[in-house]
């Protein structure tokens, strides 16, 4: 389990190039993840590896192929200083946990880290880096096991019910 470190503004075209969007299978997509940007990722990413990035991870397209490609490569957690909005929701929907951590840039490439979800921090290089809680309504979806599982149990939804984020 290792950290793959990326910079700011990693866009969805970098995560999965447009020419592979006819594919929907996570494993097949994973073979092209970060193609031309960081080729060794597809070759050597292992189950449980973690992506760590700077600001605005996943900006650009709404293509769900991006989190699916990461999922297919074995990634279950992405830690970033901040996320682009559509990617953030897509990640949760496909079963990847996006964690916002202001100190993400201090985590080193190739290092081993431990994520302590319940206590809200990441252990990296002997330091505890706090992670921001996931908004309550999205936590409900994560707890259900993703949006598909959440939706399966619903006959209909009650609209205009609300809560504070």
């Amino acid at each position: 389990m290792r950290v793959w470190k990326f910079g700011d503004n990693i866009d969805t075209d970098a995560i999965i190039p447009g020419r592979y969007l006819v594919i929907y299978d996570p494993r097949t997509l994973a073979a092209h993840a970060f193609e031309g940007t960081r080729d060794e990722f597809a070759e050597s990413a292992r189950e449980g590896d973690i992506i760590v990035a700077g600001r605005n991870f996943g900006c650009g397209s709404s293509r769900e192929h991006a989190p699916l490609a990461l999922l297919g490569a074995g990634v279950r957690v992405v830690i970033a200083r901040s996320f682009a909005r559509i990617f953030y929701r897509n990640a949760i929907n496909v079963g990847i946990l996006p964690l916002v951590c202001r100190d993400a840039p201090s985590i080193e490439d190739g290092s081993a880290i431990a994520v302590h979800l319940r206590d809200g921090y990441i252990e990296s290089g002997g330091k505890k880096l706090p992670i921001e809680p996931v908004p309550a309504f999205l936590q409900e979806i994560i707890d259900a096991g993703g949006l598909v599982e959440y939706a399966k149990k619903l006959e209909r939804v009650e609209t205009c019910t609300g809560s504070q984020s």
Binding site: E64, I86, R89, N90, N93, L147
Partner: peptide
């Protein structure tokens, strides 16, 4: 804009 799973919903 939304992703495909959200669109499924």
């Amino acid at each position: 804009g939304i992703g495909s799973t959200d669109m499924g919903f």
